[in-house]
Design a protein around this nucleic acid. Structure first.
Length: 429
DNA sequence: GTCTACATCTGTC
DNA sequence: CTAACGGACAGATGTAGAC
């Protein structure tokens, strides 16, 4: 690990509050102060909740059909997800944050690490970050500072939970005894990398607080669990093991999958869905200048309909030479689908995954030319530019064509793409 | 028997 | 009207066939 500076590492973790719900509220201020949730694709589950919605007891991942009645009675607003809007807002936030440090790792759509070595008055920097993001985008964020990534995540959690910290928590400014008291009151499940299963296993060993995990024997943790959790213990002690990853590692996999709006039984319907997913996956692939060495298709029934017969299968089809051609990827996907399809089941989901990715320009030219031909390259270029100019699906393969079937997703209450689609803006009057 | 590639499962945001 | 429970990834674990 080579830090550019000789200074001890300091990380900021900036995380937007209730990101998707906040994005919606920015563009529709009438939502302010109301319980707002954003639903997953298919309007399936709650994936973001405003503070008011959390106060109503809505949990992350709650299936909407189970809470809808009560939620609406309480005056709640449920919105279909609008990822084009969230991605655009995310880009704005990340770009603003780069003003505060040249060393930035975009960790997820609403989270970002910053390298803050050599900066003093961290709390006031945190407050400045908050006000900059709020003024420029309308989005509330919280900021945590600490000598390790794991601790900065924890600091961010504290900043979010404790109103009197004003959305900023600088662990580097706390005395050892104050830190002890703080982490002694935090559930071990709040630690980055400790999920449900690990939390319950730790619980069985009488490790229930962050402080107890921090003070556990690292070697014992390593042998009982993994080197990953051992690293977490060290990070909790302030020993930085995880460096800022400023360069995004190349994708290993591209996935396009959807749950269906209604159960699908027949092969032709599945073919239309898989054809659509394959085309989208190939588009993503070219967008990142990659080529795929293999394509994988999967279909399965709904694990929630336990009374119905269950079936799920996936298959991988390697390409002779890596390719990025929509027609070939679609062809392979459909061949795979035929291979795994079984009649008589109510399928709930399908997907196409591209594996063994390599940079497009690393594919040996003769192989690329032999298998794909330059005609294919030209065709893909035209395909992408037409679809980008005239909208997704303006040109589609035969496999992805036709009237939308039962598989297309439900989105009953989607907000306009305010920032990316002129024609979706409300008319001025 | 072991090795390996593929399939499936788990966890994270 | 009824029925209705995410998606995109990485990495671990399981398993079947090759040798």
């Amino acid at each position: 690990m080579s830090e550019s500076s000789a200074l001890p590492p300091v990380f900021a973790l900036v995380d937007a509050n209730n990101f998707y719900a906040s994005c919606e509220t920015v563009f529709n201020p009438k939502l302010r102060g109301r319980p707002v949730i954003v639903l997953s694709n298919n309007d399936g589950c709650a994936i973001a909740r405003s503070a008011e919605a959390k106060a109503l007891g809505i949990k992350m991942g709650d299936p909407y059909f189970k809470i809808e009645k009560e939620f609406r009675k309480a005056g709640g607003v449920a919105l279909s997800s609008n990822f084009a809007l969230y991605a655009d807002m995310s880009n704005r936030v990340m770009s603003l944050l780069s003003e505060f440090s040249a060393r930035q790792e975009v960790y997820s759509i609403d989270e970002c690490f910053l390298g803050m070595e050599g900066h003093r008055e961290l709390t006031s920097i945190g407050l400045a970050i908050r006000s900059r993001i709020l003024t420029a985008t309308g989005l509330p964020v919280c900021v945590g500072f600490a000598p390790t990534k794991t601790l900065s995540k924890l600091a961010n959690h504290v900043a979010k939970k404790q109103p009197d910290w004003n959305g900023v928590c600088d662990l580097t400014a706390l005395s050892a005894s104050d830190q002890d008291a703080l982490v002694g009151g935090l559930d071990v499940a709040e630690v980055w990398g400790v999920g449900r299963r690990l939390a319950s296993a730790l619980h069985d060993m009488r490790i229930t607080t962050v402080r107890q995990l921090r003070d556990a024997n690292p070697k014992q943790i390593r042998s009982r669990f993994s080197v990953v959790l051992e690293r977490t213990v060290l990070e909790l002690r302030g020993i930085s093991c995880l460096a800022l990853e400023e360069v995004v590692p190349p994708r290993q996999q591209i996935v396009v999958s959807r749950s269906f709006g209604a159960p699908v039984y027949d092969l032709p319907d599945l073919e239309q869905a898989v054809g659509t997913f394959a085309a989208r996956a190939a588009e993503k692939l070219r967008g990142q200048s990659l080529a795929a060495g293999a394509v994988r298709v999967f279909i399965h029934t709904s694990p929630f309909r336990t009374q119905e017969p269950q079936y799920g299968k996936s298959v991988t089809l390697p390409f002779h030479a890596a390719c990025d051609d929509t027609l070939r990827i679609t062809g392979a996907s459909l061949a795979g689908l035929k291979h795994i399809y079984q009649p008589g089941y109510a399928f709930s989901k399908a997907g196409v995954m591209l594996d063994a990715l390599i940079a497009r320009d690393k594919v040996p030219v003769d192989l690329f030319e032999m298998v794909d031909g330059s005609k294919s390259q030209e065709l893909m270029r035209v395909l992408d530019s037409v679809n980008s100019k005239f909208g997704k699906g303006s040109i589609a393969t035969g496999a992805a064509c036709g009237a939308p079937g039962a598989w297309t997703m439900r989105q009953s209450n989607k907000s306009p793409a305010y920032t990316t689609q002129w024609d979706e803006l409300p008319k001025a009057r």
